[in-house]
Amino acid sequence: MATPRVLILRAPGTNCDQETAFAFQRSGAEAEILHVNRLLEAPRRLGDFQIVCVPGGFSYGDDLAAGRILASHIRRKLADELREFKAAGKLILGICNGFQVLIKSGVLLADDAQGMPATLTMNESGKYEDRWVNLIADGSKCVFLEGISALTLPLAHAEGKFVARSDAILQSLDAAGQLVLRYTRSDGQPGNDVPYPQNPNGSQANVAGICDPSGRVFGLMPHPERYMDRTQHPRWTRGEGHDPGDGLRIFENAVRYLR
């Protein structure tokens, strides 16, 4: 099959577009970075691509809360096209700010009568933090995590605390297998008790990433594009880390799925 084409959606303030494009290219895809204005002018251009990725950064400055303005543009102008895109069996990935955009635009979790079922909000610590975290993944549901059970990845954000509007919503997401990526303890102990900073932002149920019911739309707070090589691992001089890095596997999964 032809090489999958990836649209890396860039808005004012997006800043992880180039390395995310690099990660897709390295995984065997063709990546094109496109300014959101071009897509808003011509939403049909989505049809040229098999993957849409909203990368990390501070779209529109995150001025009214992280990802909110870009999410609002998507809700108003791109919702139908993205629904078609999903229905066609294609993939959507949101990383960090992209995750915030996907969740606030309703692309990841559809609104119910009372609005958004869940959100990403200010870290419990009240501040932006850059650190590496250990994650457990459920690869059975989500295309991007296929064959992956554990990951080590860096993250860097101020608004990554996952909050569902109610316990019932959280439970139903869990039961549906959509809470596919979770922070875990660095000592390898199982259980839901993951203290700060191993759960770096106070997310409910230690959620670091979720997928939609189809498993083809995935959003995560950590940055997989920052761990492609061994030398990006914080302890590579101690012999830890590997090539390819854990992050690259997520991009490779996406490309493999479409091949």
Binding site: N15, Q18, E19, G56, K127, D130, P154, H223, R226, M228
Partner: peptide, 9 residues
């Protein structure tokens, strides 16, 4: 820790 020291990969 408050600075992003890894963006641009």
């Amino acid at each position: 820790r408050q600075y992003d020291h890894e963006v641009q990969a």
